[in-house]
Structures are given as C-alpha cells and as structure tokens.
Design a protein around this nucleic acid. Sequence first.
DNA 1: GTAATATTGTCAATTATTGACAAGTTAATT
DNA 2: AATTAACTTGTCAATAATTGACAATATTAC
Lengths: 108, 108
Amino acid sequence: MNATFGEYIRQLRTDKGLTLTELAALLKLDSANLSKIENGKREFDEKRLDKLAIAFDLDFERLKTEYFGDQFAKKMYEYKCSPETLIVAEEKMNYLKSINIKQAEIKF
Amino acid sequence: MNATFGEYIRQLRTDKGLTLTELAALLKLDSANLSKIENGKREFDEKRLDKLAIAFDLDFERLKTEYFGDQFAKKMYEYKCSPETLIVAEEKMNYLKSINIKQAEIKF
DNA sequence: GTAATATTGTCAATTATTGACAAGTTAATT
DNA sequence: AATTAACTTGTCAATAATTGACAATATTAC
C-alpha cells in the first residue's frame, strides 16, 4: 500500500462496487466533493475517519496511520522537505512524550 | 536538538541577548505573539522562516527540517498516531515523487 | 441516444488563523 | 518598595482557509 489517501478511498469504494453517491451518503458528504477528494483536489476531513472505518470495516488505527502519513507526505512534497524531517519528527514526538510524563509526575 | 520549535527560537534569541521586542521586529511580528509562539501557544508562520534564518544566520533547509518535524510531531502527539505513521509518510512521499517523474516523462 | 456516474467550477457560509492592543505578571535595578 | 524593562495572557476584529452545496459539464455503459 502506498497510494495517496484519495486513491486508497477510490480503491476501497470501487472494490465494493459503490458509487460516489452511495459512499458519499455513508460519509455524510456531497458526492461532488468526494470525487474531488478521491482525485486529490480536496482534503478528506479527519472527523470522518470513523465513518470511513465503519463503511469498509477497517481498523481505525491503521486508517489513521494512512491518513496522517498521507498528510505528512503531501506537506513534505509541497515544501521539498528532506527525508531527515521524519527523523526529526520522531525525535520531537519522543520529546513531547517525555515532557508530558514529567508534567504528570509534577502534578501528582 | 530535540526541543519544540518554540523552545528552539527562545534558545536562539536568548543566546543572542535579544528581547522579544527586538526579535519580533526582525520577524515583522507583534512581541506578544512571539511570546505565545515561544511558549507553544501559537504557531510560527512558515512564511517567516526565511526571516528567522537571516536573523540567526541559519541554514534554511535545516530550519525547514526543524519546523516541519515539529509540526508533524505535534500532530502525531495530538492524535496519538503510531510511529508507523512516519514510515507510511516516507513511502507515500516516494510514491508522490515517482508519480511526478512519470507525469514529467509523459509530458515531454 | 440516454441514463447513470463522475468531474469541475463557483460561491456563500462556516471555521481557523492572524494582527493588534490592552491589561496583567514577573524580574531586575536602584 | 517604587520604577522600569521584559514577558505573558486575554480578547477580538480582520483576514484567510476550508467546507457544503449545487449547477453545469464531461465521461462511461448500455
């Protein structure tokens, strides 16, 4: 799996033989806008990830991974970021976690 | 280096003995808002990265890496994304590049 | 051809971000 | 402890970005 998130949705939808209108209804979304999402011309709204997971019986955590991975990739591509960016992201992520742990320790 | 971007700016600023007001002027920004940025209560706007690089004589690419790495880390932390997300991001990044190459090949 | 499906363009409405300034706190100095 | 400089916080109008909605057009399948 390494398509964009829009391509991924289209794959899921066509595999299940759904029309844009049908899936759009499940996602509480205009079919025209779903078309744009599949074609990478609009963003899929994070708040609909749960509906998407239900519609296709997908693991929510896995879906989140695909979704945010896609977002980060787009940003990096748009701004021509070096691959190093992802390493920094991981470090900073760990840093945020460590700060949170420290703060929790102080509070109690 | 693994502080947040706000902490990083504060470090640079205090190392150079600048006040919020002084740096804010260089960045064409209100000092109150710079304070919020340093304290993680507002986002640093990407369009000011160039001014920041100049103010502290930093490598722009390196700064971008810190900046976007910070953004991704915050998102992942906020949404409790798995570390796998970054691997997916890298794959999708490569996928976007490969698509672009193919499109370029078709065009000419 | 036509009917179903998908795409594109547009725009008002909603939502998010920013700039600006006032009011407050903290820290250092005398 | 009064003064001043430095910093923080709250607020809100202005600006910008995103979304929902729908019409118009294009594509595909029969």
